[in-house]
Amino acid sequence: MEKFALHKGLVAPLDRANIDTDAIIPKQFLKSIKRSGFGVNLFDAWRFLDVGQPGVSINQRRPNPNFILNEPRYQGASILLARKNFGCGSSREHAPWALADYGFKAVIAPSFGEIFFNNSLKNGLLPIVLSGIEVDALFHDVLGFPGFQLIVDLENQRVVTETNGKSFNFQIDPFRKHCLLNGLDDIGLTLERVDEIKKFEEQHKLNQPWLFS
């Protein structure tokens, strides 16, 4: 996993509540064998006017001009702003994979689906919970200032606006913060315990040798 350094990026506002994992990446794209490449079909049903099928290049598709992510001013956005209960629905990890693959580094919302929240952290995508009022204020700013950027300062657990210097604090589990800051994935962390695992395995083999025969 990449280290989550101080991140500065363009913000895209998606003004909807309860965006579920099927909306983030529709079911027909789940038969893929990769964890990369989902970005082109992120929010597929909203981003395009035609119905998306796996394997069809997006150059042959008809983009929905009214969908916010298609507006020229939000191209290259890396921070997504959304409403409550973002990422509700299934446990599939394709949703955070798609967001990260599209280029998002962080999602800001008043609340998140629980499994999505955890899956995001495991995949280097930072879900940031701010209060409804703070999210409102950000929506206001994004719409008001083309090119509106935010600075996500994970170390100090705050989001800072570039233009007017507003700052919002957020909470994060200390262990998850440590992992993100240092680019440690769960596997990397567990592998720091190699000796303990090996020792356990030896003893386990003595206790239940038939498991290893």
Partner: peptide
């Protein structure tokens, strides 16, 4: 388990 955990078990033989 989820896919990240499948990978975790493959790599470490353990689950958190």
């Amino acid at each position: 388990i989820g896919t990240s955990e499948v990978e975790h078990v493959l790599a470490t033989q353990c689950l958190v």
